[in-house]
Nucleic acid binder design. Structure first.
Lengths: 84, 84
DNA sequence: AGTAATTTGTTCGTATGTATC
DNA sequence: AGATACATACGAACAAATTAC
């Protein structure tokens, strides 16, 4: 039923900053096969809700995933797992 | 002639943020009897025009009024003053 | 029946200000 | 000083529901 792995409890005192914890979560979801190439990932709004963080934090994570070529984004539609 | 009280001048430097000023305006319109239960409130587009704010700001106000049960919304139709 | 217009829903892009560490 | 996070606002595009003609 999960489109992704269960969202992590964001720990603001951990070594890794919140946005990095989000990145790790999405990457793990992809590697686990929960998120497959071509599939849309949870929207920024959804992630802010399930993670309990601000949109800017989610966007930082999404932006870095995009820079790494892990995902690609279509404005107004969402972000998708890159085929590769 | 007014469907609502005269729209407020939105003050971006006030203590209350713009969306809260909009909420207060709608609530005052209801309490003043200009907007009655079952009546439709101005559309999001109308409010953006008379208030001079972005739709996202109007939607934030409308969303909170809905959460409070002050109004209810029918997609494609509009938002109405709740009966209560 | 069918198309256009209206209205709300969703999503991303961007910017500013404040606060914390 | 710098990085990070939060809250709020702007704009834009497209989808979906409803209404009007």
């Amino acid at each position: 039923m999960f489109r992704v792995l269960p969202p992590p409890e964001i720990d603001y005192r951990a070594e890794l900053p919140p946005h990095q914890q989000i990145i790790d979560w999405v990457r793990a979801s992809i590697e686990a096969g929960e998120l497959r190439p071509g599939q849309v990932i949870p929207s920024e709004k959804e992630m802010t809700q399930v993670l309990g963080v601000a949109r800017t934090t989610v966007r930082r994570a999404v932006g870095k995933l995009r820079e790494e070529g892990i995902i690609y984004t279509v404005p107004g539609r969402g972000s998708y797992v890159a085929r590769r």
